[in-house]
Structures are given as C-alpha cells and as structure tokens.
Amino acid sequence: MRIPLFPSSHTLRVAALAALAASALLLQACSTVKLAYNQAPQLAYWQINSYLGLSDAQAERVRSELGDLHQWHRDTMLPRHAELLQKVQQQLPSDITADQACRTYADVRAQIDRVIDELQPRLAGLAAQLTDAQIRNLEKKQADSNADWTKEWVNVTPEKLAEQRYKQLLSRAEGFYGTLEAPQKQALRQFVAQSSFDAQRTYAERLRRQKDLVQVLRQVSAQPANAERNSELLRGYLERFNASPDADYQRYARKLVEEGCAGFARIHSVMTAAQRAKAVQSVAGYAQDFWVLAGR
C-alpha cells in the first residue's frame, strides 16, 4: 500500500506521464515494487494512449520519450528516493512531530518537482503534435473521470463520505503498520472527523485544472512550431497545477497539508512498538528495492 504520509491526495499527478514519478513514491506492496517500476513506461504509454488516441508516429515518439525518462529516473531519482526513505526509516521508531512530518512531505514534493522539471519539455513536444480531435477525446475522458469522481466523493452523504475516507486511510495505514487496533482506529476516525477536506472545493479545483490544460493544449496546437512559446505555456500550466491561482484554494490546500502532518504525527504516536517496527521493515524493503533497481 501507499506510505500514508498524509495528505497523499496532494501528490502531483501530471497527466499519465507522471506515473513514472508515482511509481517510485506511491508504492504498492513491497513484493511488487520492482515489477511495477519496470512496467512503468508501458503503463504510462497505455494511459496516454487511452486519453489521446495516439497516431503511429506519436506512439513511437512517446514510447521513446518514456524510455528515456524512465532511464533518467532510474539513474538520477531512485537513489534520492532511497536516501529519503532511509531518513524516514530512522525516524519511525520514535514519536514524530508535525514539523518533522511536514519536512518529509516537503522533501517528497521537491523530488516530484524535479521529475516534473524533466518531464516538462517532453510534454511540450507531445502537445505540439496533438490534433483537435485528440484534445476533444481528452475532454471526453475528463468528463467520464469526473462523473466517477463525483459519484464517489461529491454525491454522497457526509456520513458516507467520512466512512469512505476512513476506510481508504485505514487500508493505507494497515499496509504500512500492520493491523490497527481500537486506539489507532479511534485516532484515525478523529482525524477524518476533524479534517477540513471539502469535496466540492476539491472538485472545483479539479475542473479548473482540467479546463486550464485543455486551453493550453489548444494554444500549443495553434502554433505547434513555436517551441519556446509552447514550452513556456506548459511551464505555466504546471506552475498553476502546483499552486492554484485561486488564493482561497491555496489557503485550503495549505490547511490540508498542515492537518495531514499533524494527523500523521498523532496517529503515529499511538502506534505500538511492534507496529512501528513493521513500518521500519516496510520502508527498509522499499529503500532496498530502489537501490537494486538503481543498480547500486
């Protein structure tokens, strides 16, 4: 399961290409990390193709770009991910403060931002090749995804929403710490009950980002040969994805991060020594897998 460093919902996802970053930071079960990582380019290609319907020439270029990005990530980022996990491993046997949790979160974000920097010019190259039909197909896929999202998170009662969030976080936590008992479950429910998470506000930002992306892609497709302009357009989109131009949403997002750091610290504080040992073992396994994948 994912390492439950709250709030995991704020991990950057930039189209399907970000799967290369997510494959290293949003972890599956330890036994499948190597397999999942090695399959990341194929999975990312499948996602991109499902959203855009690539031509043969586009597909060849995307596969090549994904292969290059994957090799760069293996050589450059996997050792950094492993080092960060080793740092986390050293902290887990003891209580962790909210400040420590937020520093770890900031380190994760910094590593993802480094991947996004490497990704940006590749996105610009693909965007310049898109047709109007492909952008319309992207919009349709966005609408389908939004229908599923609203069904699960918006069009539900507050009680059902809280229960869904609790079950999601419980699954992540138990994948990390092992089986949770009553005291840990109570702390988790308290975290959910006190959370400022607002599904409607989150959904509104989701729609803004999607509309922003489509507008940028249409601007790029209008002048595909202007590489410098198009790169700047994509860079601006990624910056707005990372930090919303909506000041109210920025404050909301910061509040969720702060609550997530405090929530993780509080829940970790009620874990038993055995549960913390299980977490240490889990992180050590992830770090070892990353070193092996990096060929170190």
Rank of each mutant, 00 (worst) to 15 (best):
L66G: 10
L69E: 13
D75L: 13
T76E: 13
L78I: 07
L78Q: 06
P79H: 09
P79S: 05
P79E: 07
R80G: 01
A82T: 02
E83K: 14
E83Q: 14
E83S: 15
L84D: 06
L84C: 08
L85T: 07
Q86I: 01
Q86V: 06
K87N: 11
V88W: 11
Q89V: 06
Q89M: 11
Q89D: 13
Q89I: 01
Q90L: 13
Q91K: 13
S94A: 15
S94N: 14
D95Y: 05
D95L: 12
T97Y: 08
A98D: 14
D99H: 09
C102R: 15
R103A: 14
T104G: 09
T104D: 12
D107N: 13
D107T: 11
D107V: 05
R109T: 08
Q111P: 02
Q111H: 12
D113C: 06
D113F: 06
D113I: 09
D117R: 07
E118K: 08
E118C: 04
P121G: 08
L123H: 12
L123Q: 09
L123E: 10
A124N: 05
A124S: 15
G125D: 11
G125N: 11
L126T: 03
A127K: 02
A127S: 12
A127Q: 05
A128T: 06
L130N: 03
L130H: 05
T131P: 07
A133H: 09
A133W: 05
R136G: 10
R136A: 15
R136E: 15
L138F: 13
E139D: 10
E139L: 04
K140N: 05
K141F: 00
Q142R: 12
A143I: 07
D144T: 09
D144Q: 13
S145D: 08
S145M: 08
A147R: 02
A147N: 04
D148H: 02
D148A: 08
W149V: 00
T150F: 00
T150Y: 00
T150E: 11
E152G: 02
W153K: 03
V154E: 10
V156A: 01
T157E: 02
T157M: 05
T157C: 03
P158S: 10
P158L: 09
E159S: 06
E159P: 00
E159K: 02
K160E: 14
K160D: 13
K160N: 05
L161G: 00
A162G: 06
Q164V: 04
Y166H: 07
K167S: 10
